[in-house]
Write a protein that binds this DNA or RNA. Structure first.
Ligand SMILES: [Mn+2]
Ligand SMILES: [Mn+2]
Ligand SMILES: [Mn+2]
Ligand SMILES: [Mn+2]
Lengths: 219, 219
DNA sequence: TTTAATTTTTAGATTCATCTAAAAATTAAA
DNA sequence: TTTAATTTTTAGATGAATCTAAAAATTAAA
């Protein structure tokens, strides 16, 4: 089996390569894992020996099929546990990530299958991220950052790019949650900020920074 | 915090001293943890330095108040997770121990409090073992081994001493589960075996070995 | 296209949990 | 109460996972 640590490295490499076709660099991994480049290099050799990553010295890494399978299974577990924590134990969406970081390493496949069934085979986690099936298939996600919407667009909140407590609590304060309808009322060329309307609220001023972290699906 | 390994040692020491007032020996711990006496000695020094155990070289160990608190909290978590697995995920009582061995090390207190509430604050786990409260208080357990019952006694199954899959599946085969009424019909002086009656079943022959592992409450 | 800055890897230590083999202490037997 | 058996501890190693500091390779700048 793979150690807790190996699993975390594979997950980090997955996340770093999720939206690019580029190889992942040692420093990127070190930054994401809060560790030193030298430690990363050590682990890369180990993961390479186990055929979980494609690694050429100085050229960065990518996941092999086997490594991808492990990473996706960790993400599946993480997100299913997050659903459990929110839906069954009434945690708030900003409280579950750290606990899921631990739970995602619990081993039994049978456990995850039963948890999946118990939760009604959810397809999204509390942050709108897709939950892969047992075979590693992700549902298609046709969402885009709010920052890419035009004036007049009607959309609804479908996910977030920033999973930090700080950001999620800020959204709570604005009464924005998954599914909230959003209308783009104005766009300020100067600083890239937006004015948006959401039901039962004054119109909101949203900074470019925030708009990039809000994922929406157009209606 | 305490490592996974430290927690397992504390739990082992707890279980070994649960029913005696004696100090626990190095060899006993080594046997329970499937490790070597030398490794145990190393860990005992470490736990002693952290004031989790009272340790005098060659004289055995006992838990300090702090060590007791940790051990009981691990046991609380283990048993609550077992209830979750059986009650919510429909695992059988012989399938949950190993998974709970992993889950018991998940850190968050908030998680356990909420799990406890979600499960309806159960006072017994699927094997009839008491679940301590958050403050470490165990419910009184007035059960005794079936082997100590006399002919004519009426009791009901309230727990087991052997938690192995093999034993629990054997009980399934006999249709014996927690709460099953048991009447002692006969006792064979020769080998200590018993003949008992349970509802809707032929009378059963129970070896002394088995009778010692069945805990009952008299009615 | 040299030189400089950055990134990545190696070298060498450290901490944790484990092991085997040997020494020391305790307990049981003669 | 000596001697023998058993238990426990120490000594010394090993394999993860981590670190710092220094060397090597790559990339960017002059
Ligand atoms: Mn998360
Ligand atoms: Mn999530
Ligand atoms: Mn158990
Ligand atoms: Mn149990």
């Amino acid at each position: 089996m793979h150690s807790y640590t190996e699993e975390n490295y594979l997950k980090a490499i997955y996340k770093l390569s999720e939206h690019t076709d580029q190889e992942v660099s040692t420093n990127e991994i070190a930054a994401m894992m809060n560790t030193k480049a030298a430690s990363v290099t050590d682990m890369l050799r180990k993961l390479s020996d186990k055929n979980l990553i494609n690694y050429v010295k100085y050229q960065g890494v990518s996941l092999t099929a086997a490594g991808m399978k492990v990473a996706v299974s960790i993400i599946r577990k993480h997100r299913l546990w997050e659903v459990f924590l929110v839906e069954k134990l009434d945690f708030k969406w900003d409280e579950v990530h750290d606990i899921a970081e631990e739970l995602e390493h619990i081993g039994s496949d049978e456990l995850i299958d039963r948890l999946d069934t118990f939760l009604g085979k959810p397809r999204r986690d509390p942050h709108g991220d897709p939950i892969p099936t047992r075979d590693g298939v992700f549902g298609k996600n046709k969402s885009l950052p709010l920052s890419e919407c035009k004036v007049g667009d009607e959309a609804s909140l479908s996910g977030v790019n920033d999973h930090s407590s700080l950001f999620l609590q800020y959204l709570d304060k604005l009464s924005m949650k998954l599914g909230t309808p959003i209308t783009v009322i104005d766009f300020l060329e100067y600083d890239g900020s937006m004015v948006v309307g959401i039901p039962g609220q004054e119109r909101l001023q949203i900074s470019k920074e925030v708009a990039k972290n809000l994922l929406v699906s157009k209606r």
